[in-house]
Amino acid sequence: MPKTNTTIYIILGLLDHEQLSGYDIKKKIDMMISHFWEVGYGQIYPTLKLLEAEGLVVKQSAESSKGPEKNLYAITPSGKAALREWLDIGETKEYTRYEILLKLFFGSELDTEENIKRIGLFRERHQQNVNIIEMFKHNLKPILSQDDDHLYYYLTVLFGEEVYKAYLSWADKAEAMLRDAAQRRQAEEQGEEEGPE
């Protein structure tokens, strides 16, 4: 099985904790994992089908209080072994792709205010992420000793807290620098217009 399809191992890791439907898997990814790893909805069911064909998960029908039966997936011993094997492999690269930095790199093509607006929107998005992370932290802190999983979840939350706070700090500094540069240019232009006395 190819080790480059990280979605495989995300699903195995979630199923190692509990049985889930495809919909439940997507909800958990959106709520808990999407802050540091994106998984498209279209990847989940094909990956579940692959995992089932490989014998790494089993599918079973379960009654649903909200309507028709739903399929629940459970990890198999082979799935646990594949998950453990992947966890033992060292990370090859940390992916850092920031569209905002790419666009700011060429930002001199735009008015300063447009760049400041872009940074402001970046700040707003990540302030929301800080708020979500704070909620996770608040919920996990009292139950850290109840389950090893909670401790490891908490470590990812701490990482997110540090990263998002760094984003906000950068946004403040970047905006201040752009405003300072704009004021200097404006002062220079006014000086040129007035000319020598």
Rank of each mutant, 00 (worst) to 15 (best):
K59M: 04
I132K: 15
L102Y: 03
K26W: 08
G55R: 03
L155I: 12
H126C: 02
I11T: 01
F122V: 07
L140Y: 10
K137N: 07
S21A: 11
P2F: 06
Q186Y: 04
P77K: 12
E124R: 15
E38S: 12
Q43E: 11
L155N: 11
R123G: 00
D148E: 13
I11P: 01
L83P: 02
D149R: 15
G160M: 07
P196L: 12
E38A: 06
Y153H: 09
R125T: 11
E193T: 02
I143Q: 08
E189M: 08
A81C: 08
A82K: 02
I143D: 05
V130C: 14
P77F: 07
Y167A: 05
H35P: 04
N131G: 05
Y95E: 14
L140C: 06
S65W: 04
D147K: 13
K28Q: 11
E63W: 03
R185A: 06
D88H: 13
V39G: 10
K26A: 05
K66H: 09
Y45R: 07
N115C: 10
F159H: 15
L72S: 03
S64L: 04
G120H: 10
G22W: 00
L83D: 02
L72V: 02
L15M: 01
Q43K: 12
R184L: 14
S145P: 00
E188F: 09
E91D: 12
D180Q: 13
A187D: 08
E99C: 09
E18S: 07
T156E: 12
R125H: 11
I89K: 14
P2N: 13
T112E: 09
E63L: 11
E192A: 12
G107E: 06
L15P: 00
R118V: 06
G40K: 10
L144N: 08
N5M: 05
Y153P: 01
R184G: 08
Q19M: 08
V57E: 00
K173N: 09
I25E: 04
G120K: 14
Y152W: 14
L14V: 05
D172I: 13
L83H: 01
S78V: 01
F136Y: 15
A176P: 01
L102C: 05
R123M: 03
L104P: 04
A176C: 04
S145K: 15
G191A: 13
H150Y: 12
W170R: 09
N131F: 04
T92R: 14
K26G: 02
H126P: 00
T76W: 00
T156H: 13
G195N: 09
A81T: 10
